[in-house]
Write a protein that binds this DNA or RNA. Structure first.
Lengths: 301, 301
DNA sequence: AATAGCATTCAACATTGTGGAATATCTGGA
DNA sequence: TCCAGATATTCCACAATGTTGAATGCTATT
């Protein structure tokens, strides 16, 4: 809409973990805009505190105000605080790193981690860590995509980049994987993003039945073999269920009706929108032995 | 500079901890702009993921991208990770809540807390907590102001709002307090922001001698009496010194010269800029008994 | 059925950002 | 010391851009 604003977005997006500092000229080259234009915008951002500038090197960095408002944004979401105890409990139960992720509202091909608890005891929301990952290659991302089929097409809009030899880059393959995820209730990442790293995750629903996030664990492949996965799956599913529940998501009567003005409605878990038909919650129940076996067989190929 | 951008700033600033959600009309009224103008801007922000919108209530919230880039900003500053172990150590030593704060680059009348460790064991960077406080009423803020006299005038630019009956609202009073702070090396907050809450803090210098942050503790007044303050002061000062040191700040030769191309320069701690004269580091040394006594006397009035 | 409050769309207008050219400042090399 | 080639910054005329009143379409409330 507003073109000048989009230019600002482009400029801010130039600042990444890999390139956190920019000189004016480099920045102008990078975004392909005239230097004076970039200068004007950056000076304005500087005045507002949105970027910072080293007084000598003249290099720009992202500023304090961004952090301040960002903190507010995450606080607003509330989900993080809500989920925290369950996330920690999950870590304690399985000992591995636990992540809480949401889909990037702009581009669902990316997942953004809003919390993380390290395998050992480093219990801190370390936002210095990786915040962004391709949703179609990680467990949390796939857990969310699987239960929001209408969003998947947006992921397919662009070609799926392969990160490892295991990455599912063909839409058909990914679709099959998502279907499987829907069946068993949890998703699996078999080293599709980083080699040697595997993970599993389950979706979290809000009080209206929408998929809003996912919790998952990740670990070195050798430590998370098929048998372990089978054993841990119920725990991950239970965690996702508990978080959903504290977010107000209840499948039969009770809390749920409070949010729909006396009308008790159930939710179509697959579409993620309130629907008429009543359905059993795959999230809250444990997976059948059948699907667990199916998983193990698939993991071998 | 760019007026349209400033409008955007105004809009984003409307979102606070107290008013985290806005409808379009309310927002337009609040910032006193025509509705279509606000609409255009917000839609653009929405597309960029900088704000979010509840699909039904149509209310705007701050979005994920803000959080993402904010995380990057704080990570970039690095100071937080650097200081973390010392911050934690300080908490362990005195058992009280420890905060790490920096001055708002735009308006030094405010301090922004970039880290916090709770008195007990809740060791997490809880950015859901208070992030912003008036610098002239809190220990961390006054520690930074005291050692940057040129900045203080900017704080005086606007009248100092009183938060409690102890708040130093008269410039002369504050100046006296800052002078005292310079002498003893650490600042004190005697319930000047929140009643019943007192605190003390010391400034942190970077490798060029600039004051970049402050560490401090805060506690209920009854728990942090004059005698306790006297006992704890050296610990706080030592912590600030250690953080400064790991940031590359060294007062005699050594690391410091590495940053000034072979020229060994010392730093004028008060002005915060490299200077010719050599001075003893108030930050790294313990306060004399005299100043500690002076403090106790003052605390009585 | 009617009102009042929302969000949204449109298009004509002039305010606003744009960017080429000029200047100032810095850095490293000869 | 001086120059060459970077950099950041300032200026101003132009037109592209954001602006906003008026009109429309919603959704709730009375």
């Amino acid at each position: 809409m507003l073109r000048s604003l989009k230019k600002v977005f482009l400029l801010i997006d130039a600042f990444t973990a890999e390139a956190p500092e920019w000189t004016l000229a480099d920045l102008a080259r990078h975004v392909d805009m005239p230097k004076p234009t970039v200068h004007h915008i950056m000076i304005t951002l500087l005045e507002g505190g949105w970027v910072d500038r080293h007084p000598e090197s003249k290099k720009f960095r992202l500023g304090v105000r961004l952090w301040e408002k960002g903190s507010l944004a995450i606080k607003q979401m509330g989900l993080r605080d809500l989920a925290r105890p369950h996330v920690e409990a999950l870590m304690r139960e399985c000992g591995e790193t636990v992540r809480l992720g949401i889909l990037d509202t702009v581009d669902p091909a990316w997942v953004i981690y809003i919390d993380r608890v390290e395998g050992r005891q480093t219990v801190r929301a370390d936002n210095a860590a990786t915040v962004r990952a391709p949703s179609y290659c990680v467990a949390t991302g796939k857990a969310m995509l699987a239960f929001q089929p209408d969003i998947v097409s947006r992921v397919f809009a662009r070609p799926l980049r392969g990160y490892t030899e295991n990455t599912l880059t063909k839409p058909a393959d990914l679709d099959r994987d998502l279907a499987l995820t829907r069946k068993r209730g949890y998703s699996l990442n078999r080293s599709e993003f980083h080699g040697e790293v595997v993970g599993m995750a389950a979706p979290i629903h809000d009080h209206e039945g929408r998929v809003v996030a996912a919790v998952g664990i990740s670990a070195p492949a050798y430590r998370l073999g098929p048998e372990v996965i089978k054993r841990i799956a119920p725990v991950v599913l239970a965690t996702a269920g508990e978080i959903s529940r504290s977010a107000g998501f209840v499948t039969q009567g009770g809390t749920y009706e409070a949010f729909t003005k006396g009308t008790v409605r159930s939710v179509d878990l697959v579409r993620g929108v309130p629907a008429v038909r009543k359905c059993a919650s795959a999230t809250l129940s444990e997976p059948s032995d059948r699907s667990a076996r199916g998983l193990r067989a698939r993991g071998r190929q």
